[in-house]
Computed example of a mutant assay.
Amino acid sequence: MTIAQIVATVGGVGYLRPAPGTWGSAAALPLAALLHLIGGPWLLVIGIVAAFFEGLWATTAVTRWGDDHDPSYVVIDEVVGQWVALLPLSFGAWHAGVSVFDLWPGWIAAFVLFRLFDIFKPGPIGWADRRHTPLGVMLDDVIAGVFAAIGVIALAALAHGLMGA
Rank of each mutant, 00 (worst) to 15 (best):
L43M: 07
E54M: 13
V98T: 12
I76H: 06
A32I: 07
L35I: 03
I150W: 00
A144R: 01
V84Y: 02
Q82R: 05
Y73N: 11
R64I: 04
L162N: 06
F91C: 02
L34K: 03
A156Y: 11
D67Q: 12
P41D: 06
A157N: 12
A28P: 02
L37Q: 13
A28V: 01
G106S: 09
G40R: 04
P88H: 01
G81R: 05
P134T: 03
L116M: 13
T59A: 15
W94I: 01
G21Y: 00
V75F: 05
I125V: 15
F114M: 12
I143Y: 04
I150C: 12
G47D: 05
L139T: 09
G151V: 03
A109Q: 07
S25H: 05
A159N: 10
V74D: 10
D70M: 04
Y15Q: 15
W65M: 15
A144W: 00
V13W: 08
E78D: 14
A33H: 10
G66P: 01
I119Q: 08
F101E: 15
H69G: 05
H95D: 14
L44G: 07
V49D: 08
E54T: 09
L155Q: 06
L158E: 13
I3E: 12
M163Y: 13
A110D: 07
G24P: 03
F147V: 11
I143A: 11
I108T: 14
G40F: 02
D141M: 04
R64D: 09
W57K: 12
T2F: 00
W23K: 01
P30Y: 07
A51S: 15
H36V: 06
L135W: 02
V79S: 07
P20V: 09
A33V: 12
V45E: 04
H160F: 11
M138I: 02
L34R: 04
I153A: 11
L139Q: 13
V10H: 03
A58M: 05
V49S: 08
L162C: 08
L139A: 13
I3V: 15
A33P: 00
A148E: 07
F147P: 02
L86D: 05
V45F: 00
F53N: 10
L103N: 11
A32W: 03
A148M: 06
R130T: 02
R17N: 10
A27T: 09
V79A: 14
H160N: 13
L31W: 09
A165I: 12
A85K: 03
S25T: 15
Y15W: 15
I48P: 00
G106E: 06
L35P: 01
A32N: 05
L116R: 08
A32C: 09
G24Y: 08
I125G: 04
F52P: 05
L89W: 01
L135S: 14
F53C: 06
L86S: 02
A4W: 05
D140T: 01
L44E: 13
A159G: 02
F114R: 07
A28W: 02
A4T: 11
I119T: 12
L29T: 07
A19N: 09
A148S: 04
G161S: 10
P18C: 07
K121L: 02
W57P: 03
V79Q: 08
D129N: 13
